[in-house]
Computed example of a mutant assay.
Amino acid sequence: MRILCTGGRLGVTVLLGLTLAVPASAAPVAIVAAVTSRAPDGWLRTGEGITAGISGTALLALGPEGTEVLVAHDNKRPGERRLSRILLTPGSGTRTAEVRWIGDRLPVDLEALGEVPDRPGEFVALESSGRGYHLRLQDDFTARVVREFTVPGVAAGDNYEGFTLTRRAGRLIALWAHRGQDEDPALLHTALLDWPRLSFGPRHTTSVRVAFPRENVRHISDLEVTPGGRVLVTSASDPGDDGPFDSAVHDIGRVDPYGPRLAASLGPALAGTFPGHKIEALTCDGGVPGVLGTDDENAGGSVRTTSVCRD
């Protein structure tokens, strides 16, 4: 397994089959027992109950043991975890370990997580309120807040469920989205981002409505840009904490780096449907494999690999 964090004096510990590098002086961390439940449709369970739902994913490593991701949880109370790292071993199961959040404030309702291009071990997480956090993994079990920010144009009633960064034509571009609900469309924003200053340029906004799911639909529950520049969004139905849920992935166009804006197609093109789950997380790395994560509320969280990221 390729470990992304190499700073400091590290010892290597094998925990429930998950090989992680940890500081020799680190305090004990919460480890969730291996989950081996694999549904016929390819989903791997990662935890039980409403606090185990996954609201964002970012790739950590690819290796012979499987795919390792950092995930965000939309928990709101003290003592509930905000971040975890999960090892997916297709055909076998998952291993999960908590990642401590170190910062001046504990986030409330994290809904998005993404890698910072060309900066290994650094990530951006976004609350539903539009407050963002620049994170750096200090070791495999600790993430420290480096800086905080707020996305531009936050309005009353906005509920953000997607944020990602992509580098196109040498430019760093931020994409973030208000989720929308039924007749209220999602609003996808794009802007250049000056990373050293964490300063956003003028933003361009595109309305997005999907045709599936058809009821209780959040038009954008996460978003991602493939290596080739395609913009993918997940959409999900949410009738309540007990479901039933349905989700889909749509291709809504490409990033035009000179706008920057969405160079939209004729409409959202359906890339895949996923019945029985509320997908709130999608990450793509190199096109394959992509990883989907779910927040199935009372039914907990699940992950699976996906081919929707292929360019």
Rank of each mutant, 00 (worst) to 15 (best):
C5K: 00
T6C: 09
G7K: 11
G8C: 06
R9G: 12
T13P: 00
T13Q: 05
L15M: 10
L18I: 01
A24I: 15
A24C: 13
S25A: 15
P28T: 04
V32S: 12
A33Y: 03
A34T: 09
S37D: 12
G42W: 02
W43V: 03
W43I: 03
T46N: 07
G49Q: 09
I50W: 10
A52L: 06
G53I: 05
S55D: 04
L59I: 00
A61L: 06
L62Q: 04
L62P: 00
P64D: 12
G66I: 01
E68V: 14
V71N: 13
H73L: 09
D74P: 05
D74V: 05
R77Q: 15
P78N: 10
T89V: 08
G91N: 05
T94F: 00
T96N: 09
I102P: 05
I102V: 13
P107V: 07
V116C: 08
A125I: 06
R131M: 07
R131Y: 03
R131G: 03
H134I: 02
R136C: 03
D139N: 14
R144Q: 10
T150E: 10
G153C: 08
D158T: 05
Y160P: 03
E161H: 13
E161D: 09
L172Q: 12
L175D: 04
R179Q: 12
G180T: 11
D182F: 11
E183A: 15
P185R: 07
H189V: 00
A191S: 14
S199P: 07
F200S: 04
F200Q: 06
R203F: 02
T205M: 11
T205C: 08
T206Q: 08
T206S: 14
S207K: 10
R209Y: 03
V210W: 10
F212E: 05
H219K: 14
L223S: 06
G229F: 07
V231L: 14
V231F: 11
T234G: 08
S235H: 05
S237E: 00
S237H: 04
P244M: 15
V249F: 00
D251R: 13
I252G: 14
G253N: 09
R254Q: 04
D256S: 13
D256W: 07
Y258W: 13
G259E: 12
L262R: 03
L262N: 08
L262V: 09
A264K: 10
P268D: 09
A269K: 11
P275Y: 15
G276Q: 14
H277L: 11
E280Q: 11
E280F: 04
A281W: 02
T283K: 03
D285F: 00
V288N: 01
P289G: 06
G290F: 01
G293S: 10
D295N: 15
G301N: 09
V303A: 04
